[in-house]
Structures are given as C-alpha cells and as structure tokens.
Design a binder for these strands. Structure first.
Lengths: 319, 319
DNA sequence: GCCCTCCGGTCAGTTTCTGTCCTAAATTTG
DNA sequence: CAAATTTAGGACAGAAACTGACCGGAGGGC
C-alpha cells in the first residue's frame, strides 16, 4: 500500500475527481512530503499525462487534456452508469459507436465486482431501450449474450450455444468466434463452426445461452477480406424494412424542424415537401406524421396506407 | 519509460485489452524477465486487482472481477463511445443514472485530447436523442453547457452565464455553483447568486454560454438539508406532463408484452385492461395505442381525445 | 509419466526512492 | 513595488526497492 506505483495511481485518481488541488493537500493525502509529490507529478508528466500547475497564491495542480488518455479512475456509480450506457449504445441507441461500445462494455464488465453487476442488471430492467419503436423493430438482445460472445471473440475462446436458424429447428453449435459485426440494427457473429467445418454467420438475436468452454484457439484466417463484408455477402434475406415516401403539405422548414434527424426532406414547392425514411417498423412514421399536424399523402409503402386506415378507424371509434 | 510504476500500469492495460496472456509474452512486451513479471503480478494483486493464473499447457494470466475497480484503460474509440453514451444518459435516456453519468462524463471529457472531443461533437450531431418524443418534450440541453457547469461545481469555481427566467428578460449572472440536480426530465443548478446574495435555483435549459471565471471559492453551506429538496421546494411551476389513462380491449398479457417498460398495466377482466402512463408528449401514447392493434377508450386526458380525433380525421383523408 | 507453465525462495548488485536541505521563478496581494 | 505564497528543481545521503539469475516445486493436460 505504501508503494510508489500505488501512490501514483492514487494521485491520478485524485486529479481526476477534483480538478484543482494545492500541492500541500495532495502531499498530505498521499502521506508524503511535498518534494516527493512534485516528483510524483513529474512521473505522471513523463508518462504523458499533462499535469498543469499554477504558482502563486491559490496555486495548485490540475489534470489537463493531453495527447494520450490516462487510465480512467471511476467510482462504483460511474462504472454502473458506463456499463448501462454502453449496453444501451450496443443496442443501436447511438448509431456508429456500437462496436466501440461493446469493447468498452466488456472491459468494464470484466473487472466489475459482482455487486455492481447486480446493480447493472437491476437498472437494465427499468431502462427505456434505445429509441422508441424499438420494441416493434428487431427483437431486443440480451446484453449478457452480447458480452459473453464479445469476450470470447476478444480472448479467442471457443463457445457453445443454441441456435435457431431461419425457420429451422434449434441446433446446438460449437464454434470459434471471430468477430462481432453490427449491421443495420442487428448484431452478427462471424465464427468458424467446428461441427460444419466452415465459416458461418449467426444472428445474435437467434442465439441462446452461450457458454464459454475455456478452450482457447489460434485464430484462423477468414477467407474473405473483412468480417463485415462476409456478413453482408452471406445475408440472403434482405433487410425487410420499409422505404417510406410521403408528401406532406407543410413547408419544408416546418417538417425539417421535426424530422430532420430521422428522415430526408425534399422541398416540392412552397407548401409541400417529400419525406423519405427507411425503417423496420411502420409505427413511428405514423407517429411522426401524426405529430407534424399537417395533411399528407402516402406514396409508399402500401402497408403504411393500410395501417393508417386501420388506425384512423380505431382512433375514431375510441373517441 | 523504464519505470516500474509505468510498467505496472502497462501490465494492467494489457490485461484489460486481451483477457488471456501467457507469462512469457507479457514479459517480452514489458521488456523484463519472467521473474520480474511475476513480481509485477504480485504487486497488482497486493493493490487489490485479482489477477488469476492458469498453469500447465496453454496457461496464462487473466484479470478477474474483484472487490475494487481498477483504473479503466480505454482506447480512443472507447473513450468517444463512453462520452457520447454518457451524454445521452445525462439527457435522461436511462432514468436514475443521470448524476453518475455526468460525473463520468466530466472525468472523461477532462482528460480527452481535443481530436477526440471533436469526434464526440461530430457524433452528437447525428445522435438520436434519448427516447422518441423527446423533441416534443423538454428542450434539448447542450451537453457542453452541462459539462462546463458540472466541472465548475466539482472544482468550486465561480461561473458567469446568461439566464432567461420564467417570462423574464435575459439577465447576466455571477454565481458560486453548488450542485446539479436532475429532477423529472430536467436539470437544475443550485448556486449562490453573488449579485442577489442568496441561494437560487436555475433551470439548465434556460442558461446560456456559461463561462468559468477561474476564481475558486470556499463552498458555503446550503441552508436546507439537501440540494434536491431545495430544488423541489423552489419549484412553483408544477411539471406540465400528462397523466394518461386508457382502457384497452385486449388481454393484459398482450398489452404488457408491448408496453411493459413504459406504462403500468392493470387487468380489468379477461378481455381488457387499464393502461396508465405519465408523459410530456402525447405523441407516443398515440403511437403506442396504434401499434397495439386493439380497440381502446381514452379516460384521460381530454387533450389526448382531441388529438386522436384529429389524427384519425387526418389519417383518413391521407389514404 | 512427461511436458509445459506458473510459483516463490534466495542472493548480490544496482537502481530508485525519499526526506531534508537549498535557491529560483512565477503570481497574487497589499 | 515589496511581501507572501506556491510551484520548480538541484544536491545529498541513507533506506528501500527493484532486477536478473538461479533454483527446486507444484499443478494441469496429454
């Protein structure tokens, strides 16, 4: 405990939790002389962490932004927040960061004491998943499943799991996991199937109770170039999804203010514009159209027309 | 660079990025003998980080979950993911973790190199905010504002900002920030106003361009017990919000499957149930009711009835 | 039973660390 | 402008540690 490296770590932690510290206080907290504290600060600086110092009255030390990221010293609550947030992110709440999020998530979860994992589980139960419309979109994925598989990928460890293929019966698989690929709003696992002796793509939401076997393997080379390309190539079933096209009788400006983030909007004339969006679920285009508060006509898909007619009738009966 | 503590940190980092390492490889990477590596591992264990070791063929070291959280060694992408995720979390995407999220966020942002901050900003632009219906709910809050104020709270640093009170003119404030309180779906700042010489509560979404003055202060004691209580007491304007109550003619089971997470469902009889939810925006109850696909009657609020009638008419004309 | 890997003791030489001086430099305050 | 405060950093000596080399042991997998 009286170690130098431990102290350096504690110093880093102090600098992260409270930005500004006078030298004397830091020295007292760490139980060393001020001179040694200065040396510790020097050490941190040599390691690339930019500790800034102010002289004079009310001087002190603070950690600035540097070229490299220092290790994050987080407390329990913060770790839970990160874990829960990263779980949400892997579910597509924030497009584009799914992969980084799953890596961060495995790191946090790996070192998390059990009591914190329980907190995370408890919080997950009350969490609003990603966007709305999610529940009608892809089936929600157990974060637990994702984490186990991600860890196995990272550590080159064989896993077994149950898999229910497209309309097929449930089978038991034994594979060497290679990469996890987020595509569209789904996760896919690229793995070498040890029973079929070939590379396969598995949809993560069809995969149940993965178990780590503890057996490690030397990673094979994937035949294609890229795991993502491999998944795309193997995707026979096209993304279902709907391409929605609607003419809204309102100025493009008004429509943009509401839908800019979720749809592309083209102005037709001063009083109307064309709204396009791609979506798995028709529920939220309906909601979007309702909430704009303007007249509109649906160009496609026909399913949306049917659905709106049905909603209209039902809403009419309800009020 | 050849330091012991630096090496210990690097070892910790290695153990976090790739779970399983043979001792020899670790030793080579760290540039020390195997014996010294073993001593380093011992050091980590003494610091409370449980490094497990496997003997025999294919043996190696791995980091397990322990009692304490080790410093998280994250790479650039992961840091960006954490920052973006925590920003979303502070906006109420995941109820209950706002405060921890803002603390984690300030920690990450504080040490983040500028190039990564730019990435975070770029990602924020394309981010779908928290839940849908958000855009009709509370005005979105600039994460930048939240971060600046949170840092100032943490570091006991005076700030200045513009504030547009409830129906009042814009004023310039100079305060000693005390605490940030998430309440409902909004953030409030409890601070000592240096012009008015009294404690005040500020709604964060009405606060513009906060500037850190660099002047630190000795924290005063808040008169009441709790910052959260102080905010609640000062809240004259009640949360607008709607309490939605709807009878749905479907089995409770079916409705639960769809709405369990966002609403409370009470069974009335075998064929109908009562759905309650609280929301700022009526759009998404409408969408939820539409997507269930069952008949229903609205009990309250009257605004929902009006809105549904209007939607019904408009949908009818559209198809 | 054999091989591979981690485990930990001992020892000597070297390095580093620490506290106590000291002076210098920067910055705020009066 | 001077005083006070606070970081910066050199010198030094003693204590503490770290390191590599060597060793026999122990546990796991084939």
């Amino acid at each position: 405990m009286a170690n130098t490296s431990s102290r350096t770590l504690r110093l880093l932690s102090l600098l992260q939790t409270h930005r500004y510290w006078p030298g004397e206080e830091l020295a007292t907290r760490l139980g060393v002389s001020v001179r040694t504290l200065r040396r510790d600060v020097d050490r941190l600086r040599e390691l690339g962490y930019p500790v800034e110092a102010n002289r004079g009255v009310d001087g002190g030390y603070q950690l600035a932004a540097g070229a490299a990221l220092p290790p994050l010293v987080v407390d329990d609550d913060e770790a839970v927040a990160i874990a829960v947030g990263m779980q949400a992110a892997t579910q597509g709440a924030i497009p584009g960061i799914e992969e980084s999020a799953i890596r961060a998530l495995t790191k946090v979860v790996q070192v998390m004491p059990p009591r914190l994992r329980r907190q995370v589980d408890a919080l997950r139960a009350v969490t609003v998943p990603s966007g709305f419309g999610q529940y009608a979109g892809p089936p929600p994925l157990e974060p637990e499943v994702l984490i186990v598989v991600a860890q196995a990928c990272r550590d080159s460890e064989r896993i077994e799991f149950g898999y229910t293929g497209h309309g097929a019966a449930a089978t038991e698989r034994h594979v060497e996991p290679h990469r996890l690929v987020p595509l569209g709003r789904r996760w896919y696992l690229v793995a070498y199937d040890l029973t079929r002796h070939d590379w396969r793509t598995f949809r993560m939401d069809r995969l149940t109770s993965p178990r780590r076997t503890g057996a490690r393997f030397a990673p094979r080379k994937l035949p294609g170039e890229d795991a993502a390309a491999f998944v795309r190539a193997g995707l026979k079933e096209r993304q279902a999804g709907y391409a929605v096209e609607v003419v809204v009788h309102a100025t493009a400006e008004v429509v943009r203010a509401r839908l800019e983030r979720w749809a592309t909007i083209e102005e037709i004339d001063a009083g109307s514009c064309l709204v396009r969006m791609n979506t798995d679920s028709l529920d939220w285009p309906a909601m979007a159209l309702g909430s704009i508060g303007a007249e509109f006509e649906v160009r496609s898909p026909p399913e949306l027309i049917t659905m709106l007619a049905e909603w209209s009738a039902r809403f009419g009966r309800a009020v």
